[in-house]
Amino acid sequence: MAEKDEGQRSDKLPLEQPNEGLPRSYNELLGSNNPMKTSWPELVGSSLEEAKKKIKEEMSEADIQVVPPDSFVTADFRSERVRIYVDDSNKVIRTPIIG
């Protein structure tokens, strides 16, 4: 049995440990290689007007749709549409995303 152990290589390198945590979003994973932003998590809690301005700065062709509380939306995907979900005081309550 000792002969089998001697014949096997024991110089395997340990797996590298990442210095950073896992990405929290698709945009974070792509980093600077991302040609277009697809979500704006930093806008949660901001006013509707601030959110519209920021999204239009970064995506001028955006078709912004404001979604009031308890409203229904369609399930279709449109690459130019960005929905902004707001509360009764017009504060953004969910991450605006393309779709």
Rank of each mutant, 00 (worst) to 15 (best):
S71L: 02
R94E: 08
S79R: 04
A51V: 02
S46I: 00
A2S: 05
P23H: 11
Q65F: 02
S32N: 12
T95A: 15
E20F: 06
P96M: 05
P68A: 13
G31S: 09
A75V: 12
R81G: 01
L13I: 10
A51H: 01
L22E: 15
K12E: 11
E49W: 07
L15N: 03
S79V: 01
R9K: 15
G99C: 03
K12G: 15
L13K: 14
L30S: 06
S10G: 15
M59G: 00
N33Q: 14
P96F: 10
V92W: 00
E80S: 15
Y26Q: 11
G31A: 04
L29N: 06
A75H: 08
K91S: 01
I64N: 00
E16H: 06
P18N: 02
D87H: 03
K52W: 07
I64M: 05
R9M: 02
L29V: 11
T38W: 06
L29D: 12
N27D: 14
A51I: 01
P35L: 04
E57L: 15
E80C: 07
S32V: 11
E61G: 08
Q8A: 12
G45I: 09
K54F: 05
F72E: 15
E28M: 09
L43P: 06
E28N: 09
A51T: 01
K53P: 05
D76N: 05
V86I: 14
G45Q: 07
N33E: 10
V44G: 10
M1N: 15
P23A: 13
D5W: 02
E49S: 14
Y85S: 01
E80L: 10
W40M: 10
R78G: 00
V92N: 00
L15W: 06
Y26E: 15
E20P: 01
F77A: 07
V73E: 05
